[in-house]
């Protein structure tokens, strides 16, 4: 498999490490006075940490180019065919300024 790193170009998959589905969103950090023991907190984390759509088809997923430029990438890949349709940089690669609310 070869992944086209948006910064480095196409590289063989041995340079990358896989994390998994990019869809689950980590519940935001909370200010503790408001957040401790908030109802549904555990349920939201259960969903984020454990449940997966386990898509059979196009899936967007996180890969880390650790053997290259150390960027986290969002790779659109078909889990049936391994075909990759797009590779984007994660919101916080490089030095672009990112507002807390603006990340994908």
């Amino acid at each position: 498999m070869r992944i086209a790193c948006p910064f480095c170009g196409e590289r063989e998959n041995g340079e990358f490490t896989y994390l998994g589905d990019a869809k689950p969103q980590r519940p935001a950090m909370v200010a503790l006075d408001a957040g401790v023991g908030a109802s549904g907190e555990q349920e939201a984390f259960y969903d984020y940490v454990y449940l997966r759509d386990n898509v059979a088809g196009e899936m967007s997923e996180y890969w880390y180019h650790g053997g290259g430029c150390r960027s986290w990438l969002v790779v659109q890949r078909n889990t049936m065919t391994h075909e990759i349709s797009s590779v984007k940089a994660a919101a916080g690669t490089g030095a672009a300024a990112v507002k807390a609310s603006a990340r994908s």
Partner: peptide, 12 residues
């Protein structure tokens, strides 16, 4: 190391 339903692997 990555999600797959392809029933085949790769060289690495």
């Amino acid at each position: 190391g990555y999600n797959s339903y392809a029933q085949r692997g790769n060289m690495p």
